Amino acid sequence: MGQVNKYKERYGMPFKVGIGLNLIYIIFELLFGILFSSVALMTDAMHNLSDVFGLIVSWLAGIISFKEKTPKMTYGYKQATVLGAFANATFVLAAMVWIIIEAIINFNPQGSKQGLSVAGIALIGVVINFTTAFLFQKDSQEDLNIKGAFIHMAADGMISLGVVFSGLLISITGWGGIDSLTSILVAIIVIYSSWGLLRQSLSLLMAAVPEDMDIDQIIKVVKSFNEITDYHDLHVWGIGTNDVAMSIHISLEKQSDYADVLGRLTSNLKEIDKVTHTVVQVDCPQVENENDF
């Protein structure tokens, strides 16, 4: 129960504060982007808006994941966090492609006279985005869904920093093309930082072994039992972003106490981080045939 409460805390105050701060800043940034005719500033605002949607998706996915299991949803709704991470990554990548297209279309070599003002506004974003990212930093190491929120907000901080430099360079050089070039560069950085999230979430949706799970740990535990003479059909997959399930067939020595071995093996397997669901089948000698998968 304590573990469940810990996970619920992850989806409480950090998301509320992060969403609130960024919504206020987006409105502020859009108004001044229009006022100063800054593509970079408006681009930054649109990207921040995409990340707010991403935060909302991650938040809702986390809340849904705590729903009780049902006869139809025997694993519960834990997989919602994986869907949240995947949707988050897909949405941001699509938004970045749109930003690159807009930056090219709106390329303007005429520099804005408000470069310093744009830099000052973007500097506020640097503080807000890195503050929001800090709220998720600790739990991002353990939860892919929250990792998505952290990556996006940290990337936002870098993006806002890019806008700051863009504004300063425009005020110095007077060349407005820096505005669009900054937008394109920032979009490429975000695509690069988000690609891993897309790959990891898609991998989990395909029932792959989670990247933070070392399957050799499981094999080591199995091999530590002298009573186990053989094993096969080992499967490991993620149930959501915080739980790992596994199943395995084992063969035992004839004189072994089956119940004792199963009890100790299950207990040892569940000591492995994130392994919360185990299925161990003891094969009879005459039916030790592997399954197709």
Rank of each mutant, 00 (worst) to 15 (best):
S58E: 04
A89E: 02
F136N: 00
L262E: 05
K67M: 13
D257K: 13
V280N: 04
S224Q: 08
E102M: 10
E9R: 12
E211T: 14
D260H: 13
M246Q: 11
I26M: 01
I170P: 03
K113W: 03
E142W: 09
A80P: 13
I228Y: 03
T278L: 09
V126Q: 03
D292N: 14
N242I: 04
G176M: 10
D44L: 02
F130D: 00
V92N: 00
L234Y: 09
V190A: 05
I100W: 06
T182W: 08
L161S: 13
A122E: 04
D143E: 02
Y25V: 02
V92K: 00
G177L: 10
Q255F: 07
T173W: 07
M1A: 12
T266C: 12
L135V: 00
I191Q: 05
Y75W: 14
I121H: 09
G157E: 01
A95I: 06
D273W: 03
V164K: 03
P210T: 11
N268E: 15
F86H: 08
D179A: 12
E68C: 04
E102P: 01
Y25A: 01
L197R: 05
Q137E: 02
I219S: 09
L185D: 01
L181W: 13
K78I: 08
L41P: 05
V190M: 07
F91K: 03
D292Q: 14
N22F: 03
V261E: 04
A155M: 04
A245P: 12
A149T: 05
V4T: 14
E227M: 09
N106W: 05
G18F: 00
A85H: 08
G162N: 05
D216K: 15
S247V: 05
R10D: 05
I63K: 15
G12F: 00
Q79P: 01
A94T: 13
V118A: 02
S251I: 05
H277P: 09
L55V: 06
K274C: 05
I146K: 02
D230W: 11
A207P: 01
S193T: 15
Y77Q: 13
K254G: 14
F293M: 11
A154T: 02
A61H: 08
K6A: 13
G2Y: 03
G157S: 04
N291P: 03
L265P: 12
K8E: 11
P210N: 10
I215M: 12
S171Q: 07
S183H: 09
L23Y: 08
G162W: 02
I19K: 06
V236Y: 10
G238V: 06
I146R: 01
G115H: 07
T131E: 00
T229Q: 10
Q200N: 15
S194P: 03
F150S: 00
I63V: 15
Q114A: 15
L269C: 10
N129G: 00
G111C: 12
V244R: 01
D143W: 01
M13Q: 13
F107D: 01
S38N: 09
G20H: 06
I104A: 12
G2D: 12
F165D: 08
R199I: 11
I64M: 13
A154Q: 08
V97A: 14
M246L: 15
E29F: 11
I184A: 09
G174Y: 03
